[in-house]
């Protein structure tokens, strides 16, 4: 409701009564104001982004500063917890809330970065394979088979181990091992679309292959790619967590959620919040991204009807 009022203020034209004469942009705004899942996911994700950007600035507590006299303090809702350390402290006496906040930045950067890398590789290969067919398709299919046959995590571990860990390396390695979904989806969508009459018509009006791919084919695969993209953001975030947990991802003392879980695993029976809290953070972030992705698919699908509820 608040979301809708907010949107009505910003884009009054989108809420004209005659929905059929709306320009494209307003139509999407109008549709998004009616999609509960999208609104929820987007709001949650925006809050997480705000936390990630402004949280560390406002809080002004270093996630690296150690105080060994205050080791393993419980969070505020437990006996012995205090408001000074809301989420308690870890084994080295560092503020756990500050560490999780900093970890949000890392997770978001790696999640979106790696999914972008994967999307660029996968969609380029997929669209080319689908549109040109023939030997291009055979080569791409061979690449795909190789990619699917390789154990992704193991490969990522090896590469990171060889090059040496840093955030950029982790982003590219995760991206380079996660393009199979993008390829499969964009290839089959392209194969379907390229036989439709509007592509033939574009050919007849003299559009070049590049124009057909960028104007007719890719825009029509966007709604499917977005869903894969959000799925992959979630997977990449979890992957980073696994890599960090195994010690080849983000290196300590940088606070990444996977690393926090790895560090907390020794205390699992006595201080379980050390694992549960970053786990919950991971869960909320991935759920909000997936909900927003599903919503985006419904909104950008030109065949879905505008409805007012």
């Amino acid at each position: 409701m608040i979301f809708k009022i907010f949107l009505k203020r910003l884009f009054p034209r989108s809420f004209d009564n005659d929905i059929y004469s709306l320009p494209p942009k307003d139509l999407i705004i109008r549709k998004s104001s009616n999609h509960a899942g999208f609104k929820f996911g987007l709001t949650l994700l925006l809050i997480i982004f705000l936390f990630a950007i402004f949280g560390p600035i406002i809080l002004d507590v270093s996630p690296y500063e150690q105080d060994l006299t205050k080791r393993l303090l419980p969070p505020v809702w437990k006996d012995g917890g205090s408001w000074e350390y809301i989420f308690g402290t870890d084994g080295n006496g560092r503020d756990y809330f500050a560490r999780i906040l900093y970890g949000t930045r890392i997770s978001l950067t790696i999640g979106f970065g790696a999914a972008c890398v994967g999307m660029i590789i996968g969609v380029t290969l997929g669209v080319c394979a689908g549109y040109f067919g023939g030997w291009v398709d055979q080569i791409v299919s061979y690449l795909l088979t190789c990619q699917l046959a390789l154990p992704g995590l193991l490969l990522a571990m090896t590469i990171v181990f060889l090059i040496g860990p840093s955030i950029t390396v982790v982003i590219f390695v995760i991206g380079a091992t996660h393009w199979a979904f993008f390829l499969v989806v964009s290839r089959s969508a392209t194969q379907r679309i390229k036989n439709l009459d509007y592509v033939t018509a574009a050919n007849a009006i003299g559009a070049s292959k590049f124009q057909i791919i960028t104007r007719d084919i890719i825009p029509n695969t966007v709604s499917q790619i977005i869903v894969i993209f959000t799925l992959e953001v979630g997977i990449a975030i979890l992957n980073e967590a696994s890599l960090s947990f195994l010690g080849v991802g983000i290196q300590p003392p940088t606070p990444s959620w996977g690393l926090l879980i790895a560090e907390g695993k020794e205390a699992i029976f006595f201080q379980p919040w050390l694992i549960i809290l970053p786990g919950i953070a991971l869960f909320i972030l991935v759920v909000s991204i997936n909900m927003m992705g599903d919503g985006l698919r419904d909104i950008t699908d030109p065949n879905s009807k505008v409805s007012d509820k």
């Binding site: 494209p24 009459d197 033939t200 018509a201 007849a204 104007r215 825009p219 029509n220 030109p302």
Partner: peptide, 25 residues
């Protein structure tokens, strides 16, 4: 050439639902 051909000869297709790209106005 593509552009000259476009000005010479144009097609109209059967299926009104796939003949127009749904994402464009």
């Amino acid at each position: 050439s593509l552009s000259r051909r476009a000005k010479l000869i144009q097609p109209v297709f059967q299926d009104p639902y796939s003949t127009l790209n749904p994402i464009h106005t």
